[in-house]
Computed example of a mutant assay.
Amino acid sequence: MPQEFTRSVFSLVVDGTAMNVSAIHRDGEKAPIVFLHGFGSTKEDYADIVRYAEFAGHPFLAYDAPGCGETVCSDLTKPGIPFLLETALEMLQRVGFVRFHLVGHSLGGLTALMLAQRYPERVISFVDIEGNIAPEDCFLSRQIVDHPRESAEQFLEDFIERTRQAPAWASALYAASLRHKVRAGAVGGIFRSMVELSDNGDLMNKFLGLPLPRMFMYGAQNASLSYLKYIRERGVALAEIPDCGHFPMYSNPVQMWRAIAAFHQAHRECEASGSA
């Protein structure tokens, strides 16, 4: 069968930690798109980009974060937002993306925010899919504080059961694969880092201060987020995805992709110097 993207493994050393990072990517003549997945998800969340004509010709990169999916990390105590940010920068160097559209979901959205805040000149646009920008966004990660357990394995098992029963779109589907998509030893560091930044990292001002087009995407089930009107009034485009909670890539992927494509189209002029 013809390959519509390439699957590669990149050997990296970040902060003294060896990793084999599993990625999917393709080349193209247009502006690149970088996808950072959420906690307990994988690069395959974004493989369907090849199914949408609106993205034809755009190179893309999606990879499994340390502690997730098929990526092998030699020290599972290392993953946290700073480590994930450095991993992202190493991966961008490996694939040669200089300027790019950035799309991040949840954990990936928070990592993407830190990347865009450090190097705004490299980011053409930023689609934040329910990435953390306020303390209220820690409804998953704060469980590491609210439901502590003696072992990482027990915490993950309990987390899976709570998630399976959550009254939200796609929660049971998401829960079903969690133990296969995330290493238990990585969960604590990731979650604590997310909580610390959400509570004390001035994320809202970082997000609003980005000098580039931004869209915040959220599921209709989460339309009660307290800051939506506030960020819209400050120039952030909003995309509400119907029949959806925290996981548009599982509950309503067609609307997710259409919203991303429309946002990119609206800012096509920003791509002038965005090629790899």
Rank of each mutant, 00 (worst) to 15 (best):
G235M: 13
C270V: 07
H246C: 09
E161H: 12
E86K: 15
S171L: 03
T17P: 03
H246E: 09
R164G: 01
G96K: 07
D45E: 11
N205S: 10
M1H: 09
A184W: 04
T77N: 14
A47D: 03
A88Q: 13
P82L: 11
E271A: 06
I241E: 07
P211M: 08
Y230N: 15
A116Q: 06
H105C: 05
Y174G: 01
M204N: 03
A239S: 14
I190Y: 00
I49H: 02
K30N: 11
T6I: 12
Y119Q: 15
E90S: 14
A23R: 01
G69L: 02
M215H: 09
S151Y: 03
T163K: 05
M91R: 06
G219R: 07
A272R: 14
A88T: 15
H58Q: 05
L173D: 05
R162T: 01
I24Y: 06
A112P: 04
A272G: 14
F5I: 05
C73W: 15
G109W: 00
E29M: 03
F207M: 02
P120R: 11
Q143L: 15
A134D: 13
A176E: 15
A152S: 13
S171P: 01
E153V: 13
S177L: 02
Y227G: 08
C244M: 10
L115P: 08
H25V: 00
N132F: 03
R164D: 04
V72L: 12
T163F: 05
E157M: 04
V123C: 06
L110A: 12
G57W: 00
E150M: 13
F191E: 10
F55A: 07
K30P: 02
R268Q: 14
K78A: 15
V187N: 02
H180I: 01
L61M: 10
F216T: 03
R122N: 13
Q93Y: 08
V34A: 07
L115R: 10
A220L: 09
D128R: 00
F263R: 12
V9R: 06
S141C: 09
C270R: 15
S41V: 01
E153S: 11
I241H: 10
I129C: 05
I231V: 13
D243I: 05
E4H: 13
R214W: 01
F247Y: 13
A62C: 12
H101V: 08
P253T: 03
I49T: 04
A47G: 03
R179T: 12
F100H: 11
F139M: 09
P248Y: 10
W169I: 02
G209F: 03
A176K: 08
Y250T: 02
N200C: 10
A172C: 03
H267G: 07
W169P: 02
A53I: 07
Y250V: 02
F191I: 01
S273H: 15
G96N: 10
R142C: 04
L208R: 06
V195D: 05
